[in-house]
Design a protein around this nucleic acid. Structure first.
Lengths: 197, 197
DNA sequence: TGCTAAGCGGAACAAGGTTCCGTATCGTTA
DNA sequence: TAACGATACGGAACCTTGTTCCGCTTAGCA
């Protein structure tokens, strides 16, 4: 659930004052709404204005833009991570589980306008965002990859982190672009993993 | 030297004054050097300083940062475009020609720190850069793709532009990153194109 | 040797992220 | 319930980066 907004592993402590807690939630709500409308690159000032707070308030709750983005998508990243083992259990084969999970990840990325781009940016400001995604999801991917490799369905020489970054990269610029179907390209990539029977 | 420096298709006219021409060349040389050292995202001011000119001078010769980048890489993009037909003639099969050409393109991109990222950015400022690359290279790619599809070696449902963008995306963040081998991933993608014999 | 269009430099502007600090407010305590 | 100190707030100010503007300089021609 993560409902209480935090309490998770490396998350900042809940504010002591009720108004601060309210502002934090207003900020998360406003940011989520604006990210949908304008993408994750929306200016901090716009988010602050939508939440009815000053820019300083954003920075007290979220030390950088990247942390705000992480907080907004934390639930969904968690859900994606948790779907890994579930898919292993419910799929016909390890390869099918891998494909299903990657498809989930792709759906997540391409519905978040601009997220994929910011994720791969080598801009130091987004290092936190980058590592959060990777730390949480790479191990899940690694398990799926290992299982499929162990079953002899795919090559075993692709590092999980490389596959994740590749998939992430393929999702860049996919939102609402009629002549770029990221799903299809990721499909190609995953097909390329297969070993000949 | 950047020799003739222009005279190409849609290029701006050569300046009337000798000093202007010298500045333009100094700018191209300085930009090339800085792009190697700091990547294509280097600030305009740094490039101007390195060339020993004011920022205004950059903008007279290159209306935007993107046009400067285009000018710096024009030769290499041309060379890449021209390699397409050559590979078709010299390769064992259409599929081999396609693979060889894409490999050339990937080498070009990953040796240009940050170019791939800026290429795919949906930032309107780089639309010119984006379209220059696409206009010049997509037709070349299309021919290679068509030939391989006609020979029955690969699927025929992937639009050339999509493949190009996919390959470009996979090259993002590849420069000097030890745990991301873009060449390998592009190899996977191209392998995914194959039809079973 | 002048004249003038072409070209130059860099200050100024816009936009975006982040920091700072005086002020307002919460929540506790007397 | 009134006062007080810690907590939080707002938004002006700062920094960086792309781009524009404009008064001054100079190449090239007559």
């Amino acid at each position: 659930m993560v409902s209480g907004s935090d309490g998770g592993a490396g998350q900042a402590a809940r504010p002591r004052r009720a108004d601060a807690q309210r502002n934090k939630e207003a900020l998360l709500d406003a940011a989520a709404a604006i990210f949908v409308r304008s993408g994750v690159e929306a200016p901090v000032r716009d988010i602050a204005a939508a939440a009815g707070v000053g820019t300083g308030t954003i920075y007290r709750h979220f030390p950088t833009r990247a942390e705000l983005i992480i907080a907004v998508y934390r639930h969904q990243v968690e859900a994606c991570a948790e779907a890994g083992p579930a898919l292993t259990a419910s799929s016909a084969s390890p390869y099918a589980a891998l494909g299903g999970w990657i498809s989930l990840f792709v759906d997540f990325l391409i519905t978040k306008h601009g997220l994929a781009a910011v994720l791969q940016s080598d801009n130091a400001d987004f290092a936190t965002l980058h590592s959060y995604f990777l730390d949480r999801l790479v191990p899940v991917c690694a398990r799926l990859l290992d299982a499929a490799a162990a079953a002899g369905e795919i090559r075993s020489d692709i590092p999980p982190i490389e596959l994740m970054r590749g998939v992430g990269n393929l999702c860049i610029g996919a939102s609402g672009n009629p002549d770029y179907d990221a799903r299809r390209l990721v499909g190609l990539l995953v097909a390329g993993l297969r070993l000949p029977q």
